[in-house]
Design a binder for these strands. Sequence first.
DNA 1: TCTGGGGTCCTAGGACCC
DNA 2: TCTGGGGTCCTAGGACCC
Length: 403
Amino acid sequence: MDAFFVSVEELFDPSLKGKPVVVGGKADQRGVVSAASYAARKFGVHSAMPLRTAHKLCPQAIFVEGHRERYSEYSRRVYEVLQRFTPRVEMASIDEAYLDMTGTERLHGPPLEAAHKLHNAVTEATKLNCSIGIATSRLVAKVSSDQAKPNGVLWIVPGQEADFLAPLDIRKIPGVGKVTEQNMHACGIRKVGDLAKLGAAFVEQRFGQWGLALAGKARGLDAGGWFDGEIGDGHDPKSVSHEHTFMTDTADADQLDSMLTKLSEKVARRLRDHGVFSRTVQIKLRYSDFTTFTRSKTLDHATQIDTELAEAARALFHKSWTKQPVRLLGVYAQQFEANEGQTSLIAEPRTDGWRKALAAVDKIRGKYGDDGIVSLAAGMSAQFRAKVHENPENLPGKEPAKK
DNA sequence: TCTGGGGTCCTAGGACCC
DNA sequence: TCTGGGGTCCTAGGACCC
């Protein structure tokens, strides 16, 4: 999709059309640009740029917080259209998808014809612009769709892949970021074609398996690699996380503890939604000078219970916190398992109590939204939290539940 | 200019096991 | 008195994507 977030905002507020618009937050907030309209890009504003920088570059830009639910809804609508063309659709992100069109020629015609039908169908269903790349591999299809923007269709005829890629800046290749670009420049590699000329041994030693596969691509070989897997079958998530950057850095232990609890609750809720149990808990800690640490702990059993995650997260935090002001906290769950596993010989009655309590909480949140129940634990003293952990019946106050 | 939040994948060292 | 080779798991960090 082209300038997806901005385009969706324009559907809801047509007065934004043609104006410099920045989605991501207010101009003076801590945060970065999620999406910029083409008018804003003219001023040098681009995604991932700090909002404050964007404001300086383009003071007249309209800054909007954005509406994730709207983007998800439109993403779903696009997916529905795509599925009418082939069952082998893979959403690569909220605004990108791969379609395996193998064997659909009789139904949809040759590649360009099929692409135009698809383009029209998406526009009709969503009133949004998109671009389509057609090729024999994901990598080339993705790069060609980028080259087709805005609102275009580009077909790389089989056999022409290497010639298409060769003159492009190395940075146009997904997977080549700032660091790899610098490394490649240091080797005199600026264009994809430059990679093709280098010896395989050198490329592998310097850029690993991935660079080797890319060099193969640049020579027109179907070299395989991560970008050539089967399209279709969505995969289960491998990690779930939440993080928060404070408006202003804080060294207040209570505030930090309560944030860890809040983040852990969100993570645990998502684990329950996915129906998985996590064995490894990780925290992220960023100080004012932006130095960032992660600390992780593998538990003796997998869990999806708020307090177990929160306890592990707080323990990890206090083990490494220097008492300096904190800019960001994050809680991550990974190493998923289908159930808790059998590690404890003694049944723990408290776990069962929590399971019931949390099921009720999830139900209320499902019905009344995430604010239907507010976290009591997050505002509790450590002592009281321990008491509630022993027995959820100790949870005080019926008001939030009633609400 | 002052740097979000959600993810994936890769590397590398050390512990531990056979 | 100098110490292998294979494997897996755990932990930390980092590049990259949207």
